[in-house]
Structures are given as C-alpha cells and as structure tokens.
Design a protein around this nucleic acid. Structure first.
Lengths: 202, 202
DNA sequence: CGAATCTTTGAAAGACGTCAACATTGGTGG
DNA sequence: CCACCAATGTTGACGTCTTTCAAAGATTCG
C-alpha cells in the first residue's frame, strides 16, 4: 500500500528517548517507523505529558501537522531503539498529490483517528482510573504483542492519572490475578475480566 | 470555497432537539448548516453525553464517518431551529474526487480537528473543572457571538462534569463578576481573567 | 560501589460525583 | 389567559476517587 515511500528519504537509527518532533515546531517531513516504538504525547501547561498514542512498526507519523499547515500540536519521542525512515515534506506532498490510492489511505487514517479520539475524550471524562487502566492494558497488549513494557510514568501518562495512582491500581489487578507483573513487564492473565472492568461492569 | 456544494442536495428545516445522525448508524450523506447550531456528542456506556463540538453556520458535518468507511462514532442533534442542507454521500464523494481545492480543504479540516482533539484530551485529563469552564466559556463566546445560550446540562456535558458541579462553578464566576447570568444566557465580563483561570494561573 | 533514577507505600487534603430535596421555568390544555 | 404539570435548575450534605507530598525501598548504569 505505502511501498511507494520505500525508496524515498533516508533511514536513521534513533536511541531510546530521542525526540522526533516537538510541539510548536514546524514540520519538516514525516517519519515511517521501521523498527521500535514511539510515543506521541501532548504536554499540559505545567509540562505534564499525556500520551495519546504509541506508534509502532510500519506506522507513518507526523503528517497531521504538514497537512493542517500549522506547527505540531504534539511531540514524539522514541520509547526504545528505533530504525526510522524520514521523508521530506515536499516528497511526501508530491506523493499525496500524485498518488490517489496513497492519498485516500491517508484520508482514511485521519478520519479513523479522529473517531478514536472522540472515544478517548468520552472515556477520559466518564470512566474511572481502574476502568481506563483495564481498557488501556488490552489496547497496549495488542501493540506490545503479549508483553507490555513501559515505565510506570509512561503508563500513568497513557491512562491519564498520577503515577502513584497507577501503581496502586496495577497492584489491585495483580492481587486479583488479572495481570502478571515482572518489573516493567506486564502480561495479561484475564483479558475477559479486564474487558468487563473497562465497561464498568465490575 | 465550498460554494461548489451550493446547488447540490436539498435544504431542510429542523426543529430544536432533532437528531441529524446517530452513533452506530451508517452515514448517508453530509450536512451543511445554513442556520442554527448543532451539538456533536459521544455517549458513554451509561448513555451520558459528552459534547465534543458545537457546529454553527457554514459548517459541514458528518463527513468523517463517510471518509473513514465506518459507522458514526458520534451523534448530532440540533440545539435550536436549524436550516440545513443535506448532500448525499455519492454527491459528496464525487466532489471530493473531482475537485482538488475542495478536497484539500477537507483534509485541512480533518487535520486541524485532530490537533484540536489532542488539546482537548490533555485539558480533560489535567485541568480542573474551574479551569475547563473558563476556557470553554471563552470558546463558546466566539461561537455564540457574545451571548452563550445553552442548558446547564449541555454546558456540563461540554465541560465534561456533572450538572451540579457546573452550576456551582458558574455561580463562583458570577460572584467574582467574571460573567453575567440571565437564565440560560451567559455573558462574559472579564475574558482576561477567565483566560488566566484557564491557564491555572488563578 | 555509588549516584541517580524509578518504584512503592502511607497519610492527608482536595476535587468531584451522587443523592435528595426544593425552587423555578416553560409549555400545554382547559 | 390561567393553572398545572413536567422539565430544568439550584442547593446542601456526604462519600469516594484522585492528587499531592513525603519518605523509604529497589533498580540501573557508569
């Protein structure tokens, strides 16, 4: 589908905790993740991060700012070692304008993400931390393929709560044998029940 | 810019509290608001609304679902009498595919909205009700051109809090002479200060 | 090994939601 | 046009969820 981009731009290695782009800056191009994971986050006035998305293999990130014509509203930072392809703004726009299939694919991505974001808003404002953690664990489990590996702080910022609060809720899930914790590694033991907690049924 | 649509579709009158489209349904077309205001909202599991946007004159709504190829994730309901133009899905897609300027405009809209939504998420998870109300009042003041007119419940659902909570915070603002309240009508008296409250400086 | 960072725990304060009762408003039919 | 009912708005009290602060324990990395 997007092999069109394969031959364009350069491929770069990033270490853990390197910034790909930063809120307020003007976009110079888009990033395609070949290996590794990247957190996309917005910062509140006091600098506290809220992680909106964790991007992984084959995802293209950073095009929203280019398409909207205004600076980045979010930042992106690597969560681990990453191999990433950088495509310059003009090259990206060239493909957008000339390749209908590619363009339609980007439009679908934008639209779906916008829908997801609506759900995120409702979840944040109406569900408890317990419920949100349950849902997030299921979601992260997909991205991490069975073994979630995130710092407590990142996990808390993903849920949208304080680190201490997250730790207590994690412990509760562990006690109830819903998850298994080994340091930073988290495995789900009872997705079914987590799902029910996410729906506020438990 | 979007006069292209002017001759397409039918123009319909809607009374207050009529539903334009509903979460889960398949989109049949898009709506262009000629007169009146429409709330776009998502519902939580328990049916509680969260108002994501209030659309007014000249706005086109409902195209996200069409472009993403999945059912609506949100609902739309008139807040007052509205005059609205309905453009069928196929007609809309025809213009999208044939008119570059129109299409690019839609892409910009999608991208900007996605950026706004990121801010919304951060605000919801990191700011207090007081702060969110201040920011929302400023935002609504633009849309309502000087006299905000909304039910307490809608306003609460826009802020993302309980009705009672909203009422108390409104009263606080009134006592501090930041706003003037006359029934459902709210006028801002000190936008400067509200802005500072929104930034958590006060 | 030691410093720095990350994690965990406890205690206390604060924000927020919920419940129940009451007041006000607006719309409808007589 | 008025009276009445239903819907909406308001207030107080209370409980709970969540944040914050402080401090101790664990881990990591040079």
């Amino acid at each position: 589908m997007e092999q069109i981009l394969d031959e364009i731009g350069e491929k770069i290695d990033f270490k853990k905790n390197e910034i790909l782009f930063h809120d307020g800056n003007h976009p110079k191009g888009v990033f395609k993740i070949l290996k590794g994971k990247v957190k996309i986050y917005a910062c509140g006035d006091d600098g506290k991060e809220h992680i909106i998305h964790i991007a992984s293999k084959a995802e293209i990130i950073g095009f929203r700012a280019i398409l909207s014509g205004v600076p980045y509203k979010v930042s992106a930072k690597t969560l681990e070692y990453c191999h990433i392809q950088f495509i310059k703004k003009l090259d990206f726009m060239e493909v957008m304008n000339s390749n209908t299939k590619f363009r339609n694919n980007i439009i679908v991505k934008l639209s779906r993400e916008l829908g997801d974001r609506a759900l995120m808003v409702t979840t944040l404002s109406q569900k408890t931390v317990k419920s949100r953690l349950a849902l997030s664990l299921i979601q992260l489990n997909e991205i991490y393929n069975g073994t979630i590996t995130l710092s407590r702080e990142d996990l808390a910022n993903f849920i949208g709560t304080a680190t201490e609060n997250l730790i207590r809720t994690l412990k509760m899930f562990k006690t109830e044998k819903l998850i298994h914790i080994d340091g930073k590694k988290i495995e789900l033991l009872n997705t079914q029940k987590l799902n029910e907690i996410g729906k506020d049924l438990l």
